[in-house]
Design a protein around this nucleic acid. Structure first.
Lengths: 173, 173
DNA sequence: TCATACAGTTCTAAAAACGAACTGTCAATA
DNA sequence: TATTGACAGTTCGTTTTTAGAACTGTATGA
């Protein structure tokens, strides 16, 4: 698996990782969702080196996650805003935040709370099935190769049956 | 922002990235959800170097995402299985896969389809509000500092209001 | 004229990842 | 008995990325 060819993998997870799966991209995107739009804003919020920041922004623009829009002539200045493709990463961000809220909080509790304007309540994100509306559990999901499948690999089914202990007599324990 | 102190950031997203935000961890976890449990299995499925694989597995065990369980004595052999903390990453995986399915497919379509056993249908994951059940949109979510907040940073609100063009007269365009 | 804001680029050093070979235990095979 | 292979790593030299700091260039306001 090569990093410059991750997008050609017949796996949507690998392809997504090819776009946002490096050390900085998700943090840059966090800042985007926080309404940061300019180079200096990202740099000072994250402490990323200017060199890397320039590289990552270029990559995210190239991938269509951000759009680079001029906001001033002479000197030419641009700002980076989320495209729809970028906005569609919101569930990814929320899933990551929710996992951190669940498993990585210290004794003081969550760094922040989310309020849903529609209902006015503090909520957690829940992932459901688009067809029946039930919450998704790994064990209840089964996968089949789709039209874009390339081989027997590239699936993400749930973990259920234990690995068979091989033909070794010591396989007890 | 330093990589060895990401877990101390007052941001659940940063903390989560500190655990799974490197080049390989999510791919290793994909294999875990695919029921791969052993060193050689990960190695051959991913093409990761053995050195890095050993490192990453150790880290994931240390973080409580995987558990290392002996399956054979002499020579001692272990397998790596998802803990509940690891299983809880399922929504993260599904969110990433769904984004890839939406934005990174080629003309042949999705590499794989997901079937929900409960309802028997091919589905997409949808993220909803735990309180009112409505699908979550970035624009409808507002954040407040929680008890674990450390400063004015560390939030993940929706992008809505445009950046103000600063006090520069050329700010047209 | 000088300091400052902004958005980068360039350079070197340090850290991480890659690739290939090597270690050690045991089982099955010749 | 010697040999081979499975398995789960470790070691080591090379290449790639990242970090850190300084530098470039336009333009503004003092």
């Amino acid at each position: 698996m090569k990093w410059d060819a991750l997008e050609e993998e017949p796996c949507s997870l690998a392809r997504t990782i090819g776009v946002i799966g490096d050390r900085w991209s998700l943090l840059i995107l966090r800042e985007c969702f926080l309404r940061t739009r300019r180079f200096e804003g990202f740099q000072s919020a994250l402490g990323i080196t200017r060199h890397l920041l320039a590289e990552r922004l270029k990559k995210l623009v190239r991938q269509g996650v951000l759009r680079r829009i001029p906001y001033q002539e002479s000197p030419k200045r641009h700002e980076y805003i989320l495209t729809q493709k970028g906005l569609d990463l919101y569930p990814v961000m929320m899933a990551l935040v929710h996992w951190g809220d669940t498993h990585m909080v210290d004794e003081r509790g969550r760094p922040l709370l989310h309020e849903h304007r529609k209902c006015g309540k503090t909520f957690d994100p829940v992932m459901i099935c688009s067809e029946c509306g039930e919450p998704l559990l790994a064990k209840e999901v089964h996968t089949h190769p789709g039209p874009g499948a390339r081989s027997a690999s590239a699936k993400l089914p749930p973990p259920d049956k234990p690995a068979k202990p091989k033909t070794r007599k010591q396989a007890a324990a």
